[in-house]
Write a protein that binds this DNA or RNA. Structure first.
Lengths: 115, 115
DNA sequence: CGGAATCCCAGATGATACTG
DNA sequence: CAGTATCATCTGGGATTCCG
C-alpha cells in the first residue's frame, strides 16, 4: 500500500511536521474552530472551549498569533475590548478541519462506540 | 466567516477531538506515514523516523494498535520476526495525511521561509 | 532483533487567586 | 473584561542499560 503520489518518505515527514506542529496540542484546534464561527472575545472563546483555563487560552492565542493564524485587535475603550479573529491563513485550515471532522466521525462510529 | 456546513460549535469540538487525540503527539503521523509505504519491521520504522527512541516507538505502536490503526504480527522464527502494517482504518487516514501535507507546504511557503 | 526497565527532565496542563 | 501570577501536577520524551 502506498499513497498515490510519489513523494518519498523523508520529504513527507518534513512537510507534515510543519502542519502537525501548528495544530498539535489539546487546545489549538478547538480554539480555531471557535473562531471559525466568527471573531470573538477572550471570554467568548473561553465559553466555547468550555474547560480551558485562562492561562492556557492566553498562551495558545499568543502562539497562534505568532504563527499568523490569528489576529488580536485591542479597542481602546473602557473597559478594554479585545477581539480575536482568524487570518486568511487561519481560515485556510478549513479543508483540514473538515477532514478531521469527517475522520473523527468515522473513527467514533467504528471504534469508540464499540468499546 | 463560517464553515459551509451547519454543524454547531460544540458538536464539532467533540468530533474533531476524537481525530486529534489519535494523531496527536510528535510521533504518530511520522509512524503512520512510514507504514503507508507498506508493512515494516520495528527496526525499519525506526530508521524511517530517524530520531525516535525504541521506547517511544514501542509505546506509540501499542497505542496505534489499541486504536485499530495498526496491526502487529509475530512470526515465530528465530530470531523473532515482527511485522507492523496499517489496518483499513489506518489507511483511511490517507485524505487527512494529504491535507496535512498540502497545508504544511502552504504554511512553510507563507510563514517559515519568511523568517 | 525487538523490545522492556529504569531514571530523569522540560514542558504541558490544571487550579486558583489576583490586577488594571 | 482580559488577562497575569503562582503553585502544583502530570506526561511526553530522551538516554541508557539490559534481556530472550
Amino acid at each position: 500500500m502506498k499513497l498515490k503520489d510519489n513523494i518519498p518518505c523523508p520529504e513527507k515527514l518534513r512537510a507534515t511536521k510543519d502542519a502537525v506542529d501548528v495544530i498539535n496540542g489539546k487546545w489549538r484546534i478547538p480554539i480555531i474552530i471557535s473562531l471559525s464561527y466568527g471573531k470573538k472575545r477572550f471570554g467568548e472563546i473561553q465559553r466555547d472551549v468550555a474547560t480551558i483555563s485562562p492561562k492556557m487560552l492566553s498562551k495558545e492565542l499568543r502562539e497562534l498569533e505568532l504563527n499568523k493564524l490569528v489576529t488580536r485587535t485591542v479597542y481602546d475603550s473602557k473597559p478594554v475590548y479585545v477581539e480575536y479573529a482568524l487570518t486568511p491563513l487561519g481560515k485556510s485550515l478549513d479543508k483540514l478541519l473538515q477532514e478531521l471532522l469527517s475522520w473523527g466521525g468515522k473513527f467514533r462510529k467504528e471504534i469508540i462506540s464499540k468499546n
